[in-house]
Design a protein around this nucleic acid. Structure first.
Lengths: 155, 155
DNA sequence: CCCTTTTATATGAAATTTCATGTTAAATCC
DNA sequence: GGATTTAACATGAAATTTCATATAAAAGGG
């Protein structure tokens, strides 16, 4: 057991700070799955994009960046790489030629399909370990929090 | 409202995937505070390190990296920068001369103290907006999840 | 004790990410 | 409908991050 509070001030802050707990849980829980994604040949950001595209195939770049929780220029370069690898393809939107829509390729979709199944199994295990009450509540609470934080109407 | 499920498969995955919800909530909620930290002259990783040091001043580099949720070599360089800015100081541990312990300076502690107060106010507001039931439960649930995920005895 | 292994931190070099901005297209305003 | 503003995406250059590994010190064997 590491000494909580070596310093002079009051009680510990960070270990019970909501934003820290969120970051820490996200970080640790995701690390488990990220190892799996990498073993499947994907970088972490690529897995994220692939998963988002399974929800919204053909999303425009800006939207996909928002959904993937990353900055637009970063997403652009990740999509570059994924397109080179044949996981996605780009098509400019005929309705608005500024827009670029990103689509899964067959390969991309197949890869995503398998990983999503694994992700769901992993989630099931986490929730099972967490146990009854808490396991039932966590997702609804997070969804409520996200809705509250999100200025937009959607995720 | 963006169209959920433009693609062919079943129902949406990512928007209700536990690890995505955690990442998204963490990302969005933290963004609000990060703007504040930056306005106070700190980069985001520096704020994280400062906050962790308020809990465990004098932590060794490896421990601080783990607590700050970042890779060791990254932390080393962030600490470099913070030391140059006079926020922290390094002292090698006489008990084990491989170890380097990181301490807050007076400046660092003062800066952290103010930001932590702001962070707590921010958290209070988030929980208030979230409302009763959920607000009471979220931190205990996250703590339970973290304990379960964490191989180590501590955070 | 000496030798081998492990642990703690730092660092070079490559890769990725960020920030600001360029380019092109659509929308808005007179 | 031409001029101006706004939106979408891409990209150069700087900054940061990662990965592998070097260095140094402690621990373990025999």
């Amino acid at each position: 057991m590491t000494d909580q509070k070596t310093d002079s001030s009051g009680r510990p802050f960070v270990v019970s700070y909501l934003l820290y707990l969120l970051a820490a849980v996200s970080h640790r829980a995701s690390a488990e799955f990220h190892a799996h994604a990498r073993a499947a040949g994907l970088r972490v950001p690529e897995w994220r994009v692939l998963a988002c595209l399974m929800d919204e195939d053909g999303a425009m770049v800006t939207r996909l960046a928002r959904l993937s929780l990353m900055e637009q220029s970063r997403l652009t370069r990740i999509v570059d790489h994924m397109a080179e690898r044949g996981l996605v393809s780009r098509r400019s939107d005929p309705e608005d030629r500024r827009r670029v829509r990103v689509f899964l390729t067959e390969t991309g979709r197949d890869l995503a399909t398998g990983l999503i199944a694994d992700a769901q199994a992993h989630e099931t295990q986490i929730l099972k370990d967490l146990g009854g009450e808490d396991a039932e509540r966590i997702k609804p609470i997070l969804e409520a929090l996200l809705a509250q934080l999100d200025p937009q109407d959607d995720v």
